[in-house]
């Protein structure tokens, strides 16, 4: 059957299909490879790596909410050195495209991580996390500050020729302003959106269910918000968008592409159905066949308003 061209292009990066596994929802790939064929996935975005290992937040880190979940993991990760030594070799064996997500608490740390990883051939692009809501320094402070986002983009851009993707926070008044600054400073694409800040309380104890008090909301609950943010960027800024937020199935993915996404990431669904990625890719093929679409990239920003 399939003569459908599923490939998409983000800057100089060509993916075999638009489906990416979101950072922080697939670790470094090894656990989920028990359930799914990673070689069929467009790209894997690894758990945020920082210069030094981070222990992460104390429990409770996760709570389910209506059609969603809150998490406050706190960027727990093995640190850059261990990542290069033990995680990259596994990912090298997987015939997928590897995108490294980098988190940092200073501009210098972003630059140093990018510089170090730039020499790793397996790493095909960088996703810069300026929007983690769950750590005290860095993260959200940068993500809310347009000058910082511009500066980080500029400095990271200067140390790598690989595609630079900036992962944007939805917890701002005009996300398209941030996308514009990323484009102006030489970023190749934006990922939108990271989680929305939320909380949940135990009404009998009157205490937050998550130790960090607030967490990042993900899952189907945030899909309409995410779609609106992607559409806003698409209408105002000419930059490739990687759509993220509550995608559970191929229909959700198509919706993101129509409102402006070149590619998309799945996150929370991996926790529930670790083979969701493959099922979504199959669904996209059938949809394209049914709709007589020969290149899936035609879908991007094909909205009729």
């Amino acid at each position: 059957m399939s003569n459908i061209d599923l490939s998409v292009k983000i800057g100089s990066l060509i993916l075999k299909n638009p489906l990416m596994l979101a950072s922080g929802t697939v670790g470094y790939g090894n656990e989920i490879s028990n359930f799914t064929d990673l070689s069929k996935i467009g790209a894997i975005v690894t758990k945020s790596v920082s210069l030094k290992p981070r222990k992460g937040n104390p429990p409770q880190r996760i709570v389910e909410t209506p059609s969603g979940m809150l998490n406050a993991i706190g960027l727990a990760n093995v640190g850059l050195e261990e990542f290069i030594k033990t995680k990259i070799p596994f990912l090298k064996e997987v015939d997928s495209t590897l995108i490294c997500n980098i988190a940092a608490s200073s501009i210098e740390e972003y630059v140093e991580c990018t510089k170090t990883l730039d020499g790793e051939e397996t790493v095909k692009a960088f996703e810069i996390n300026v929007s983690c809501p769950n750590v005290k320094e860095g993260g959200l402070i940068f993500g809310n500050d347009i000058i910082s986002v511009g500066k980080i983009t500029e400095k990271v851009r200067a140390v790598t020729n690989k595609p630079v993707i900036i992962k944007l926070s939805p917890n701002v008044s005009a996300i398209s302003d941030f996308a514009k600054v990323v484009k102006d400073e030489g970023g190749d694409a934006v990922s939108a959106i990271n989680t929305l800040i939320g909380t949940s309380f135990d009404i009998y104890k009157r205490t937050p269910k998550i130790k960090n008090i607030t967490g990042g909301l993900s899952g189907p609950a945030i899909k309409p918000v995410a779609l609106a943010k992607v559409l806003e960027i698409s209408r105002k800024v000419d930059i490739p968008i990687i759509g993220i937020g509550g995608i559970m199935n191929w229909k959700d993915a198509v919706e993101f592409m129509i409102v402006g996404a070149t590619a998309f990431q799945i996150g929370t669904v991996n926790f529930i159905n670790p083979n969701a990625g493959i099922e979504i890719i199959d669904g996209l093929k059938s949809y394209c066949e049914q709709m007589n679409i020969s290149k899936i990239s035609e879908l991007t920003a094909s909205y009729q308003l």
Partner: peptide, 10 residues
């Protein structure tokens, strides 16, 4: 959430 190590929630 996941039960097998990817969400880092526990």
């Amino acid at each position: 959430a996941c039960g097998f190590g990817i969400c880092q929630g526990c």
